[in-house]
Design a protein around this nucleic acid. Structure first.
Lengths: 142, 142
DNA sequence: TCACACTGTTAGGATACCTAACAATATCGC
DNA sequence: GCGATATTGTTAGGTATCCTAACAGTGTGA
């Protein structure tokens, strides 16, 4: 494969991801819960309770960062911590947390769903395939 | 188009973009220039000199944010400001800035280019198309 | 049992954003 | 011309997200 072609595709995806997330942040600012908190919450909703370390890893973030995020979530009553042994704990989403996550997620995704609304199934398939490739790149070890 | 299908594609792209940018930030931390500065620099390289306001708009950021970013870039000798009239100025990349941007961009994109290396042209086309759709969603007015 | 590994927190700092409030300059209506 | 208004950028102050370094407590295995 031509190196130029690969670089062009990489730049295109890179730029698009940056622009997209900047727009999404504006949605977050306008209303509701911050992005990092929402993201952690959604991991807990979809993957079930996790220890802090596991949650940090799932979010590609260091433990101190997640410690802070969880503290914020707990202060709002969106998650609970249950001791597992005397140093680790299971973090689980509360009912309130689940509802807030669903509302926030819908709002955040509205920007995308609106833009995708009129697209034919073939284009949606293109996006889903691209998402897979992007995720693979993201989880790749350097 | 089925609403479920649209939402699925939206979630897929959303999650992929988040994971991708978190990985890229780790690349930035490891070496080189911070992401926002690199991004602004690359706009100047590809689109030519711009006023601060235009640069802020291109980066989907408010003027005070860009004012700060440009100050950092200028302090490192990566851009110059040339007065246009007595309140506005043209910001242009220097030779040093251009070189640094190219090196940083290559490093940052290496994660993506490595992942894309073995893909056939048809998959690259898929990514490029997805990038267009994502960018359109990002620039859409809410 | 006791050194070492594991899990999470605290402290301190960087980056990247924002809004509000300003200062200075340009422009337009009269 | 000239004053009201619009435009352009900066300063000040604040928030969110992330990091590394250092630490405290808890489990575990030689």
């Amino acid at each position: 494969m031509s190196q130029d072609r690969v670089e062009h595709a990489a730049e295109a995806i890179h730029g698009a991801a940056i622009r997209l997330l900047r727009s999404l942040r504006q949605v977050d600012n306008a209303s509701g819960i911050p992005g990092a908190q929402l993201s952690a919450l959604s991991v807990l909703v979809y993957a079930g309770p996790k220890t802090l370390g596991a949650l940090a890893e799932a979010e590609q973030v260091k433990p101190p960062t997640m410690s802070q995020t969880v503290a914020q979530l707990e202060a709002q009553g969106l998650v609970t911590r249950r001791p597992l042994d005397r140093r680790s704990m299971l973090i689980a989403v509360t009912e309130k947390g689940r509802k807030l996550m669903e509302a926030g997620s819908r709002r955040r995704l509205a920007l995308l769903t609106d833009a995708l609304e009129g697209l034919p199934a073939s284009k949606l398939a293109v996006l889903e395939e691209a998402a897979l490739i992007m995720s693979a790149a993201a989880t790749r070890k350097p």
